[in-house]
């Protein structure tokens, strides 16, 4: 955790400097007759962020913050497995949206989580993963008139059928 603390402070400090540079693309001082320039607000706020990063680093060096005194690893074996299986599942879910539609991706993610990670029965996993996107479809498209991504063209026949029901 101790290394995580200083590493994160370093990354945030670099991000603050980057934000200051990007903000400076617009005027950062006071322009007569116009007030503060467009970049002033984010520039000075990023400057304060940089000062805060320096203070966090100082606290780390003096070991005054709890993470700077901790010897425990940032993530243990279970933590990394969680990241890979749950986080990876989420990345897969979002990546699938533009291929098999929002509703298709919801169904696949739910089945993956319930059956593979949750160890629920096949019947329950299938029921929930098929019923939930259907319910969402009728709520968002039918009631709220909010259109979700329909994926690539091979999903069209399914959506034609569903749109016939609600329109």
């Amino acid at each position: 955790m101790r290394y995580g603390e200083i590493l994160t402070a370093g990354v945030l400090a670099l991000f603050s400097i980057y934000l200051m540079v990007k903000s400076a693309e617009l005027p950062i001082g006071f322009i007569r007759g116009q007030g503060p320039g467009g970049g002033a607000w984010p520039f000075w706020l990023s400057g304060i962020m940089l000062i805060c990063c320096a203070m966090i680093a100082l606290n780390w060096w003096r070991q005054t913050s709890p993470p700077s005194r901790s010897d425990e690893p940032f993530l243990d074996g279970h933590g990394w497995r969680t990241m890979v299986f749950v986080g990876g599942g989420l990345i897969g879910f979002i990546a699938l949206i533009e291929i098999i539609s929002m509703y298709g991706a919801v169904a696949v993610f739910l089945f993956y989580y319930l059956w593979f990670l949750g160890r629920h029965s096949l019947a329950l996993s299938l029921t929930l993963s098929l019923a939930t996107p259907l319910l969402f479809f009728f709520f968002f498209e039918g009631m709220m008139r909010i259109t979700m991504p329909t994926g690539m063209s091979f999903t069209d026949p399914v959506f034609d059928f569903l749109y016939d029901i609600i329109y």
Partner: peptide, 29 residues
Amino acid sequence: TILAPMIFVLSIVGGYAATRDMFDIWLIL
């Protein structure tokens, strides 16, 4: 194990409903 994936799904679907932009969904993640 049922509630957690439902919350993940609601977060993504709800996030898209609010902004209608896939870029925002990646930002959420």
